[in-house]
Each structure stands twice: as C-alpha cells, then as structure tokens.
Amino acid sequence: MEAEALKVATFHSHYGAIMFKKRIGGDASLKPVPRSLSSSCGTAVFFTSPFNAESTDENTEAVYIKDGDGWRVIWKR
C-alpha cells in the first residue's frame, strides 16, 4: 500500500534534493515544495517507491505521505 502511495521529501537545500533523487532513482521528480507543507519555496522530491530512511542525509528535512487531501509526516530529522 505504502509502496505505491505518493510521497514527498523536503530539504534544507536544492542540492540535497538532487542527491536524494539520485539515491532513490525510480520515478522520483523534483518539484517546488507544496504550499500546504511550507511557506518556503524550496525544492522537494516526489516519489512513489518505498521510503527507506537510509536514503536520507543531513540535508533531508522530512518525508510525508499523501493522506486524503493532505500530507502525513512519516519521517522527520
């Protein structure tokens, strides 16, 4: 179930998002952070592959999963 659900990871830097996307591969894509998650205008990574905390690093801020119309946090540094 979770493996197919849409997830979004947020970062402290744009480069952090690029490196995370490279690490998880698959269908991951770079997009602006959803307004409902943050008032900042950084880069987020959207993906549907299973989330593994080992994919994160010091630049990773949080990971959310789609929950109805909103997002639910599943990992936070």
Binding site: H14, L30, K31, P32, R35, S39, S40, C41, T43
Partner: peptide, 21 residues
C-alpha cells in the same frame, strides 16, 4: 500566502521545469 517571488519564478523554470511561480 502565495510565495510570489520575481526571481523564484524564473529559477523554478531553470531547475525544476515548473511554471507555477
């Protein structure tokens, strides 16, 4: 509310191919 930014709009086109801002 909208995060409007004169530089961010062009930056997002360059780095994430997004035309929202």
């Amino acid at each position: 509310r909208t995060r409007l930014c004169m530089a961010g709009g062009i930056r997002d086109i360059f780095i994430v191919r997004d035309f929202t801002l």
